[in-house]
Every structure is written in C-alpha cells, then in structure tokens.
C-alpha cells in the first residue's frame, strides 16, 4: 500500500508547500512511481486550468440580466402593493410637481427621458391618466412597435396593475422617494428640451418611421446610434431600454424605460412617453 501523502505532492506542485514539505515531496517524486505520477497529474491539471480565461458577460447578456432582474423586481413590487399609499405620501410627490405647475418638467434621467406635462394642481392626475392610458394602449397591442421588448411578460405585469395605478400612480409608484431622491440617484440630470404637449393617447407608428432630425442628433450625441427600427431593447450605456416608437396626434413619439426610473418606479408607471417635435 502506498503510504506517501499525495496531498503534499499536490501542494508541492502548486507551490504551496513549505520548504521542509517541498524537500520531502521531491524525495518521494524521485523515488516513488505513484508520487511521480501524482506530480505529473497535478502539473497537467494546473497547466490546463491556467489557460482558462475569466468569464465576462457580453454587453447583450449584461443588458438582459439587468432587464430581467429589474422586471422581476418590478413584478414583485407590483404584487406586493395591494392598496394605494395613504394621502400624506401622495402629497409629497404632488408638492414637488406642483412647484413647477404651468411649466413643463423635462428631465433627462441618465439617458432616460421623462416628460410629464403639468398645467396646474391637477397635473399629477393628468399624468397618471396619461401614463395609464399609454400603458393600456400598449397592453392592448402587445405586438406593436410600442412594445418591442424581448420579454413582454413585464409589460403584461404592467398592464395588470393599470387599474390600481390609474388612481394615483406616480405617487404610489414613487413611494418615499422625492424628486430630489430621484435626482440624486440618476445623476447626471440635465435639462434637455421642453414641450407643452399633453400626451393623451398614442397609436402605433410604422416600424420604419424616421425620427425627426433633432431627435436623431440627440440620440447620436448620447451614445451609439439609436434607430427606431431596432427590435427589443436598445441599450444606451446600460441605462435605457428603448422600447419602440409610436405616433401621437401625427407626431412620432418614443417610449423609454430608464434604469433609474425602473428602479424607482413600479411597473406601470415607468413607460415614459416622449413627444418629439
């Protein structure tokens, strides 16, 4: 029976043996066939494993992973919000928004675009309705350009929550987050554009409809070319999922979901409508 310590030979092969242990291992390897074979096996394995490259997610895999996790989290959150939040929390978001009443709030959140249009104290409700309508429309036409995400299950979940969300969605969705919180999360935030359009509904645009030149310029300036013919998600530096385009009163609009918004908002309110002029 072989009575040498093969683990010691293995430790010697990988270089983790002490000098005394190494001396013993060398003696065994020189005089013992089993130890010699063990040493050769360990060296062969180490050489083979040494060639292994570290695994890195591809850009597409990374985007998919982020999206799937976000969507699952959003679904979780949606499932766990059986009742609207109490009024005080609703008021917080309203207060932030009515501060810019009669103005147009335009945020570029990272690379995501949020353009709620408010015209007074009822603005939040308008936006809620707009958002819900938008999602409802999208949910009724899941194959439309407005919903070109690869995995539509999240949007189905969005749609499932519309009735509840329509009552006070932005408030409910934002929870304890204020606009300042969102701003801090989504830095850099910058003013991009302004519009007085009030989005009330949209219809599907031709898949190959060209974007207006100013939007194309904006998109080019952001990152890789963003074309309106892409299927599924288009990722802008890992931050935005571009879902599709549609027309609104003859105007082409784009639908966005931004990462910061996805994290901050529950499913249902994170479909963002951007009217292009």
């Amino acid at each position: 029976m072989h009575d040498h310590d093969l683990d010691l030979v293995a430790a010697y092969a990988e270089g983790s043996a002490s000098s005394a242990e190494a001396e013993r291992a060398r003696e065994w390897i020189a005089s013992c066939e089993v130890c010699s074979q063990e040493f050769n096996y360990q060296e062969l394995a180490l050489a083979s494993l040494g060639d292994v490259e570290p695994v890195v997610l591809s850009d597409i895999e990374r985007a998919l992973l982020h999206r799937r996790v976000r969507d699952s989290i959003a679904s979780d959150e949606l499932a766990n919000v059986p009742e609207p939040r109490p009024a005080p929390k609703s008021g917080r978001w309203l207060k932030v928004l009515t501060g810019s009443a009669a103005a147009v709030l335009v945020l570029v959140v990272g690379f995501g675009v949020v353009i709620p249009s408010f015209t007074g104290s009822d603005g939040a409700a308008d936006f809620a309705a707009v958002t819900a309508d938008t999602i409802a429309e999208a949910a009724q036409a899941p194959s439309s350009a407005a919903l070109t995400a690869n995995d539509d299950t999240s949007m189905a979940a969005d749609a499932a929550g519309i009735d509840e969300m329509a009552i006070s969605p932005p408030v409910q969705a934002l929870g304890d987050l204020t606009l300042e919180d969102l701003t801090a999360m989504a830095a850099p935030i910058e003013m991009f554009d302004a519009t007085d359009a009030t989005v009330t509904a949209f219809e599907e645009a031709p898949r190959d409809a060209p974007l207006p030149a100013d939007r194309m310029a904006y998109n080019s300036a952001i990152e890789e070319p963003l074309t309106c013919r892409d299927e599924g998600l288009t990722l802008l530096d890992g931050d935005v999922l571009w879902l599709g385009i549609a027309t609104l009163d003859g105007q082409i609009i784009e639908l966005y979901r931004s990462e910061p918004m996805l994290l901050a908002l529950e499913a249902g309110t994170c479909t963002i409508v951007f009217p292009t002029e």
Binding site: A11, N40, Q42, A45, L46, S48
Partner: peptide
C-alpha cells in the same frame, strides 16, 4: 484543499 487536489488529479486522468 483535499477536494481541489483530488479534482485536479481526476481532471488530469480524464485529459490523459
């Protein structure tokens, strides 16, 4: 430690 050594040994045997 022991598992890693044995795994390497089996791996090398399989490669051989």
């Amino acid at each position: 430690k022991s598992r890693v050594f044995r795994a390497r040994r089996q791996l090398a045997e399989a490669l051989r």
